[in-house]
Nucleic acid binder design. Structure first.
Lengths: 211, 211
DNA sequence: CGGTGTCTTGAGTCAGTTCAAATATTGTGG
DNA sequence: CCACAATATTTGAACTGACTCAAGACACCG
C-alpha cells in the first residue's frame, strides 16, 4: 500500500497568486512552484487555463496518502467541479501563469465546457485503466508517452514534477518510479540529461510496452 | 498483474435488444444478461437511462485484461463520449431495461447533461483514488458502501455483478475478491444470503476501513 | 564548501498474484 | 423433480512484483 507523505507539502501555505496581466488582456495570475491554486473545500468559481507552467490536481486521504488525478500542462484547462466547492486540490509544480474564466458565465461557454468536462472524464477513465491493471514498467511507458505527446517536442521530455508526484499519479512508490526509470535507461530506451529531463531514444520500444 | 479473461464473454455476440415500450411512452429496450449494449468503436448517438437492471462499462487491453470503469444501476444514466464513437464497451449484467435519448438534441437538455457528465467525471476521479491507493480490504469496503448507498435498501445488497466484474472494477483478482469477502464475513461485518446477496451487519466497521 | 532536499540503489518483507483443487450454484434434459 | 454438466465461488500453497526500511550519491543554494 503506497503512501507518499504529502502533508508536509505546502497545502497550508497561503496561495501566492499575483496578477501581472497586461492592461487590456485577460489578467494572468502568477503562481510560484509548490504553491496552492485552490484547496479542497474552496469555492469553485473559476476555470483555469495554463499560459505557461504545470499543475497537479489531487486528493488526500486522512492518513496522508495522496492520489494525483491529473497533471495539466501549458494550454490545458482545469478546475471543473460538480458542486459549488472544489473536491480536489490544485497546486502549481513550477512557475505557472494562469488565466481564469467565470465558471457559470455566458451561455455560449456551455458547449465548450461540456467538451472539456467530457475530455477530463475520458482521461480519468483511461488513467483508471493504467493505474488499475498495469505493471510498473507499463505505467511508466504510458506516462512518458503521454507526456511527450502533450509537450511540443516529442523526443525530449522536461518533467515539471518530482518522482513523488509521478508515484502518486501512477500508484507507485518513489523508489519503484526511480528503479523503473533506471531500467528504461539501462535498456537504452531513454537517456537522462538530468533527473528532470529525458530524451526518448526508442519510442517504439516504449509503445510496445504500453499496451 | 491481474488479468481476468474477458474475451470469452459475449463481446462478439449480437446485441439482443428488443423494444417493449408502452404505446405512448418513450420505448424501453430490453437487454438480456451478458449482452452488449454498445461496443468500442460504435456510433455514440444515444444516452441511456436504466429503468431496471445493471450495466458495466469497460475497456479491453490487447491481451484480454479488462478494466471496468463504472457500474450503473437503476435510475442512472450512461453513454457519454467525447467524439462520435464510443471508446468503451457497455454490457447488461442482468435483465435490463433502457430508455434512450438523442445525445445532441434539445438545448434544454444541456444543463442536465453537464451535471451528469460532471458527476461521471468526479466518480471516475474518486474511483482512481480507490484503485490507485487502497488495499484490497479498503477497496471492498468502499465498493460495498457505495453500492449500498446507490440501491434503495442500505442494509441488504444484491450484487448484479460477478466476482470477476468486481475484480476488474477494483483492480484485483477474483481470488482476492473472494478472500476479502470471506474475511469480512469471518469478522461478522457482513452476512451472506447467497454469493450475490449480502447483508451489511456492521456498516460502521466498513466505514472505518474505507478511509 | 557545508547543508538540505531529491534521487538512486540495495536487501529483506509482504500483500496480492498465480496455479491448483475442492465446493457451491445454476441450468438443462429426461 | 432429480441427475448431470457447466459455471461460479471459495480455499490452499507457493511465488513474485512492488513495498518498506536503510544507506549512499547527487544536485542545488546560500
Amino acid at each position: 500500500m503506497p503512501a507518499t507523505a504529502a502533508l508536509k507539502h505546502d497545502a497550508y501555505r497561503p496561495t501566492s497568486a499575483r496578477s501581472v496581466g497586461a492592461p487590456h488582456l485577460r489578467p494572468v495570475t502568477f503562481h510560484a512552484p509548490e504553491t496552492v491554486i485552490y484547496a479542497q473545500g474552496d469555492d469553485a468559481r473559476y476555470l483555469y487555463r495554463i499560459q505557461y507552467g504545470a499543475v497537479r490536481v489531487f486528493r488526500l486521504l486522512a492518513d496522508g496518502r495522496r492520489q494525483i488525478v491529473a497533471f495539466y500542462l501549458t494550454g490545458e484547462t482545469f478546475g471543473f467541479e460538480i458542486g459549488a466547492l472544489h473536491g480536489f486540490y490544485a497546486e502549481a509544480m513550477v512557475n505557472t501563469g494562469l488565466t481564469t474564466t467565470e465558471r457559470c458565465s455566458a451561455g455560449t461557454l456551455t458547449h465548450e465546457l461540456v467538451e472539456i468536462a467530457l475530455k477530463a472524464m475520458i482521461r480519468a477513465q483511461e488513467h483508471l485503466l493504467v493505474v488499475g491493471r498495469q505493471s510498473a514498467l507499463e505505467k511508466m511507458a504510458v506516462f512518458l508517452l503521454d507526456l511527450a505527446k502533450r509537450q511540443e517536442c516529442e523526443a525530449v521530455i522536461d518533467l515539471p514534477m518530482s518522482r513523488a508526484d509521478i508515484g502518486d499519479y501512477l500508484g507507485l512508490t518513489i523508489e519503484t518510479v526511480s528503479r523503473t526509470i533506471s531500467k528504461l535507461r539501462a535498456a537504452g530506451i531513454i537517456r537522462l540529461h538530468s533527473a528532470r529531463s529525458f530524451e526518448i531514444v526508442k519510442p517504439d520500444r516504449l509503445r510496445m510496452m504500453s499496451v
